[in-house]
Measured scan of single mutants.
Amino acid sequence: DTLHVTQDGKHIELRGLSEEEIKLVEELLRRGRKVEEALKIIEELRK
């Protein structure tokens, strides 16, 4: 699936995420994380 995010005035499209990963990214962003940080966390969880 694809998640569309706008952060720091930039539109970012995150592709290839599972539904659970999207929920996790959304939660991390709500808690003030940056998109880059959220993606690093997803990458770690995929290992």
Rank of each mutant, 00 (worst) to 15 (best):
L39M: 14
T2Y: 13
I22T: 07
L3T: 09
K10S: 06
L29Y: 01
E44Y: 05
E43W: 04
G16V: 03
L45I: 14
E36W: 07
E21S: 02
S18Q: 09
D1G: 15
L17Q: 00
R31D: 12
R31S: 14
V5L: 04
D1R: 02
E37F: 06
L29E: 03
K34D: 08
L28T: 09
K47H: 12
T6G: 06
K47S: 14
I12V: 10
K23R: 13
A38N: 00
I41M: 12
D1H: 11
R46N: 07
R30M: 11
V25G: 01
E36L: 14
E43N: 08
L29K: 01
T6W: 11
D8M: 01
I42P: 00
K10I: 15
Q7L: 01
D8A: 03
I41K: 10
E26Q: 13
V5E: 05
V35T: 03
E20K: 12
Q7K: 03
E19R: 05
L29T: 03
E20F: 13
H11A: 06
E19D: 14
K40Y: 10
S18W: 08
L14I: 15
E21T: 03
G32H: 09
E44C: 08
D1V: 01
E26C: 10
E44P: 00
E20R: 10
E21Y: 03
T6Q: 10
R46D: 03
V25K: 01
L24D: 04
T6V: 15
T6P: 06
E13M: 02
K40M: 14
K10D: 08
L17V: 04
G9Y: 00
A38D: 00
V35Q: 02
K10E: 13
E13P: 00
E36K: 08
R15T: 15
E19C: 12
L17R: 00
G32K: 04
L24Y: 10
L29G: 02
G9P: 03
L28G: 04
L29I: 12
L14T: 11
E36T: 09
E13T: 02
L28Q: 09
D1W: 00
L3C: 14
Q7A: 07
K10G: 03
L3K: 07
S18V: 07
V35R: 01
E19I: 14
I22L: 06
I42L: 12
L45F: 08
R46W: 03
L24S: 06
R31C: 14
H4F: 01
I42R: 00
E36D: 13
L29Q: 03
R30V: 10
V5D: 05
E36G: 07
E20L: 09
G16N: 10
V5I: 08
L3S: 05
A38M: 15
Q7I: 15
T6F: 07
E36S: 11
L39E: 06
H11P: 06
I22S: 10
R15Q: 15
A38Q: 01
L45D: 08
D8E: 06
K34W: 12
R31Y: 10
E19F: 11
L14E: 11
K34P: 12
L3N: 07
L45G: 11
R46M: 07
L17T: 01
Q7D: 06
E27P: 01
R33T: 15
V25Q: 01
R33A: 14
I22E: 05
R15F: 15
K34H: 09
E20W: 08
V5N: 04
S18F: 11
H4P: 06
D1M: 02
E21V: 03
E20M: 12
G32P: 01
E36N: 08
Q7H: 05
L24A: 07
E44G: 08
E21G: 01
L28N: 07
R15C: 05
E43P: 01
V5Q: 04
K40V: 12
L39N: 03
E19Y: 12
L28R: 02
A38G: 04
H11T: 15
E43S: 05
R30P: 03
G9F: 01
I22R: 09
I41P: 00
L24E: 06
D1T: 02
R30L: 13
L28E: 10
E44Q: 10
R15L: 14
L45V: 10
D1Y: 00
K34F: 09
R30Y: 06
K40N: 13
E21R: 00
K47Q: 13
K23P: 06
D8I: 02
E44K: 06
H4T: 10
E27L: 10
K40I: 14
R15P: 15
E13V: 04
L3M: 09
I42V: 12
I12N: 05
L24V: 11
L17K: 00
S18D: 13
E13R: 02
G9L: 02
R33Q: 14
D8C: 03
L17A: 05
G32L: 04
R31H: 15
G32Q: 03
G32W: 01
S18H: 09
H4V: 15
R33E: 13
V5S: 04
R31V: 14
I41D: 08
Q7T: 07
R33H: 14
L17W: 02
G32M: 04
S18L: 10
L29S: 02
E20G: 11
L17P: 01
T6K: 04
L24H: 10
R15N: 15
I22A: 12
E13A: 02
Q7G: 05
I41Y: 10
L17H: 01
I42H: 00
L3E: 05
S18G: 06
E36M: 12
L39Y: 04
E19M: 08
I22N: 03
G9N: 03
K23V: 13
E21D: 06
I42C: 02
R33N: 14
I12P: 05
E43K: 04
I41H: 09
A38V: 15
I42G: 00
G16M: 01
R15H: 15
E19H: 13
D1P: 15
E13L: 03
L45T: 12
E19V: 14
L14A: 13
E20V: 12
K23N: 09
L45W: 08
L28A: 10
D8F: 00
K23T: 13
S18P: 02
L17I: 04
K23I: 13
R46I: 06
K40G: 12
G16K: 02
E44S: 10
E26M: 15
E13D: 13
L29P: 00
G32D: 08
V5Y: 00
E44D: 14
D8T: 01
G32A: 04
E36H: 11
R30T: 11
G16D: 14
E37K: 04
V35M: 03
L24Q: 09
V35N: 01
K23F: 12
L29M: 08
L39W: 09
L29H: 06
I41F: 11
E20H: 12
R46P: 02
L39A: 08
R15S: 15
A38L: 15
K47W: 07
E44T: 09
L3D: 05
E44I: 09
E21W: 03
K10W: 05
R15G: 15
L3Y: 00
R33F: 11
E36A: 11
R30A: 13
K10P: 04
E36F: 08
R46F: 03
G32N: 08
D1L: 07
R46E: 02
T6H: 12
L29C: 04
E27G: 08
R33Y: 12
R31A: 14
E43R: 04
E20T: 13
R46G: 06
R46Y: 02
G16R: 01
E19S: 12
H11W: 08
D1A: 02
R30I: 13
I22D: 02
K10T: 07
R15V: 15
T2M: 06
L17Y: 13
E19L: 12
R15W: 14
I22H: 05
L17E: 00
G9W: 00
V25F: 07
R31Q: 14
H4E: 11
E27H: 09
A38T: 14
I12H: 15
V25H: 01
L28V: 12
V5M: 02
E44R: 08
L45R: 11
K40P: 03
I41W: 10
K23H: 13
V5C: 13
E37C: 08
D1N: 10
K40Q: 15
K40D: 13
V35S: 02
K23G: 13
L45Y: 09
I41L: 12
L28M: 13
L45P: 01
E20Y: 11
E37Y: 07
L29D: 01
T2W: 08
E27R: 05
T2H: 14
I12C: 10
E27F: 06
I41Q: 11
E19G: 11
A38P: 00
K47D: 10
E26D: 08
L39K: 08
K10M: 14
L29N: 03
K23M: 13
E37P: 01
A38C: 09
L17S: 01
K23D: 07
I41T: 10
K34Q: 08
L14K: 07
E21K: 01
L14V: 15
E21Q: 05
E37M: 08
R30E: 15
L24T: 13
L39Q: 06
L17F: 11
E43L: 07
E43T: 06
L14G: 07
V35F: 02
I12D: 07
G32R: 02
S18M: 09
I12S: 03
V25D: 00
E27S: 08
V5W: 00
T6Y: 04
L17N: 00
E21L: 05
E43I: 04
I12E: 12
D8N: 07
V5A: 03
E20N: 14
K47V: 15
S18C: 11
G32C: 05
I41A: 13
S18I: 05
R33S: 14
K10V: 15
L24C: 12
R33V: 15
L39S: 04
I42W: 01
L39D: 01
E36Y: 09
Q7S: 08
T2P: 08
E44F: 06
I42A: 03
K47L: 13
L14Y: 01
E44W: 05
Q7E: 15
L3G: 09
E27Q: 09
K40C: 12
R33G: 15
K47C: 09
K10H: 10
E37R: 03
L28P: 00
T6L: 11
